[in-house]
Amino acid sequence: MSEVLVLVDHVDGDVRKTTAEMLTVARRLGEPSAVFVGQGYAAAKETLARYGAAKVYVADDAVYTDHLVAPVAELLADLVARTSPAAVLVASTNDAKEVAGRLAIKTGSGLITDAVDVATGDAGLRVTKSVFAGSYTVAAQVGTGTPIITVKPNSIPAEESAASPTEETVTTEVSDVARAARVTSRTAKEKSGRPSLTEAAIVVSGGRGTGGDFGPVEAFADALGAAVGASRAAVDAGWYPHSHQVGQTGVSVSPQLYVAAGISGAIQHRAGMQTSKTIVAVNKDAEAPIFELVDFGVVGDLFTILPQAADKVQQNKG
């Protein structure tokens, strides 16, 4: 069975959920080989085995993390040449997408981004993704080279399948041109204690209607164990950090439940949340376009509705 290379998405060995999802998909397509780049493999090892990695390539040389994107693309190009994999899967993060882009050129391979599903079809892999702000679903196929696919987080349920991976440390000659963009500082962002936006099963977002007070949004998020998002209007107003922006120019999410509080639902925002399974909105304006998308909506003031809902949720938990 052919290998399927999976570029591990992690922070210092803390494996992100997307990796488990990618390994789950990879098992359908062939034999998953995880490619671990950077420091912290010892911490990641158990998770990679639990989700079925048959092999792990470990590249812990600092050259891969001290320079932007290009060295990892060279590493994967080497592994593709060596292993002729059935596919290469990476997460739909900025870094990994750019790795995928360069890898496509290097290996003469087709690239499909933001897959929500990958299946084996009659004529190769069939990749499903949604386009035009979630208004269309398309099936796409790579016709040339090794299919390179970026997988959208939270799209494919991760399933465990224990394996005992073999390990191989890899190093490659990294070209001078790939060393041209140097990462001269890297500062970890403050952790909120809440789930990460792209991985969360529930997202509660606030918009213009919060008037800048995200208190009720955060409290409701905490009652649900949810991540907090924000509309572009709220971010542009400086009310919430840009890293929480849901929408076309921010993060695209597809959680089990999306709660939009004080968000009108402009196309810019819908692009980032329209594929959520269940959508709930609270807005003062009964005419807000967000209500066209909802499974359940409440017309009213989020400052009274969210706290009341949070209390009831706590009560129901008993």
Partner: peptide, 25 residues
């Protein structure tokens, strides 16, 4: 088209009940 209710004092509870019925909270 989903259900949209106007808050007349119990909007938050209605929201929580909806989530409970869907096993989302």
């Amino acid at each position: 088209a989903g259900e949209v209710v106007t808050d007349e004092g119990q909007g938050g509870e209605a929201l929580a009940d909806f989530l409970a019925a869907r096993r989302l909270a």
